[in-house]
Design a protein around this nucleic acid. Sequence first.
DNA 1: CTGTTAGCGCATTCAT
DNA 2: ATGAATGCGCTAACAG
Lengths: 351, 351
Amino acid sequence: MTTGSDRKAGNPTIKVVAERAGVSVGTVSRVLNSAGSVSARAIERVELAIRELNYSPNASARQLRTGRSGTIGFCTRDITNPLFAQMARAFQEVLEDHGLTLLISNAFDDPKRERDMVRRFVEQSVDGLILAPSTDDGTQIIEMAKAQGIPVVVLDRDSPPPAVRVMTEHVGGMKQATSYLLDLGHRDIALTTGGSGHLAGRYRVEGFRRAFEAHDLPVPEHRILQGAFSREFGWRAASQLLLSEDPPTAIICGGTPLLLGTLPVVHSAELSIPGDLSLISCDDFDVTQLYRPAITVVRRDIHAIGRTAAQAMISLIEGIDMPAHANFRIPTELVVRDSCAPPGSLPANPG
Amino acid sequence: MTTGSDRKAGNPTIKVVAERAGVSVGTVSRVLNSAGSVSARAIERVELAIRELNYSPNASARQLRTGRSGTIGFCTRDITNPLFAQMARAFQEVLEDHGLTLLISNAFDDPKRERDMVRRFVEQSVDGLILAPSTDDGTQIIEMAKAQGIPVVVLDRDSPPPAVRVMTEHVGGMKQATSYLLDLGHRDIALTTGGSGHLAGRYRVEGFRRAFEAHDLPVPEHRILQGAFSREFGWRAASQLLLSEDPPTAIICGGTPLLLGTLPVVHSAELSIPGDLSLISCDDFDVTQLYRPAITVVRRDIHAIGRTAAQAMISLIEGIDMPAHANFRIPTELVVRDSCAPPGSLPANPG
DNA sequence: CTGTTAGCGCATTCAT
DNA sequence: ATGAATGCGCTAACAG
């Protein structure tokens, strides 16, 4: 006996249910959708038939007919990143309450795949799309979705209207983190973050600069390393920074993947934190909380972001009036832990 | 101007494309599916029309007609868990090569939601389902899917045939880890892991026991804490273990969430690793690699598991003969790092 | 309150 | 090589 043989068992259709219940398909459809009025007796008989047949309506047919699917697509850059994983959870929490199902897909940080996934979602007639495109090219994707009249919520990224945006106060958050280091006495601070194609990257750089300006200090442009929001780049940047003749006394990592790339370099260079190097990361997940010393972070409420985005989506779908280019801004908070100290607290790296 | 107004822009249909290209819908369909034979000239005209109209076929209609959707559903217990997130990536890698799209859903560790999600997937007529049910009750879910004739691959869990299973060698892995500790001189070793409703939980306990038996030592049943694969339970178990009069000299955490729950307790009890306590975890992710001291783990190749499962799925779908109850077993490997030492290496916790 | 019917967009069979 | 016609399962409009 082999598997893969008995495909297409031919599930019961609404017609079979109708026959079994001794009513018409119209009536079955009405009880299925709690629409129109049906006699208690009919409801009972239909429900019985449904149970007996283990009937489950064919979503394709329903979608074809109604144009709606009851699903929302979320296209992540990398589902492996806790940022997106946690957001997905938050989305789901509110979408569920509205009978919507979240479908998650993973673009591997590849713009081409991203486009494919969005197209898939559109073809599947999702009722809405939550996007966090990997580059500003993402605009194209957003347009694509909107051209189909599908409501779009965009995360941490600019977007042509009408699309609702949910953004983080990166500028303020980064300015606060940088100022904190400056106040501690650091002057040689480095920032590693995502590329300029990313709004989040640009804003972080902006906040970094503003802190120096507010302190009447020159901005150390050469300490701004802007590459990608990847572990890989985090590693490269940290290597360049820490393995040089003249390492900075502090590093701010503009995202968890950057931190994950930085830590191994810190370890292999046998640098102690915060003795040899002060460290701040953006976003607060397991590593930052459990690492010893615990890492100071610029935190944002992922859950709040997720809920806000999902709520906005609901409003869009339900046709509730909403400013064409609504823009929700989520604040950040500096969580001070043990990874920062005044520079030179301990003798520098032997060598 | 408000959003949420211009819904249902009425995407072009195959009929519109046909008119524009000056051919029949049948011909358009043929070029769309590279089926039958079409003249080069017709192909050209159709493709042009498609581009001009930015046409994209309606998946619902296609699915309704063919019964296939080109999608595989993956129902995770918790997408926030790197285990599932990484598996998802691996699935995708191979599915993509076969033109299949992975749809991920998140069950929040709730069997009821799990059932809902699977039902959703079935209704959406996914071509296959990859499941890792949260409890043995999951059997019901699996049956549900199979009743519809949908190929199912089950991860780390028993299942009634026909469903392909991909399992980890938990018994051997745990036995090896326990033996390692035993050989180091530990006698009071605790194991925290998921409940008995989980195959992975049962197998780990089994391996733990076998190690003691192989050393002709009595099995410390009272040190086996079997609850859930959650951070919450990890925390409770560790608290009970470490905040007692008589703490064990070593703990094995049967999964990353357990470790994440254990670490905070270790910190607040001000225990040093491996001085006061030796620690081993199952599965190797960021925390275990980057934590100082780096944590010894029972590693399994998540990527291999994912690829194997996806390959099996492809075989099932393509109707390739495969033993009805095929069972792939994935080995584990003990990665020794710095979190274990002989017991009593340092004076115990003051008190 | 209920039955009948048209048609959603597409793949496919049968002619030609 | 192509066009015409049929029906996948369902909802919604209409008639009764």
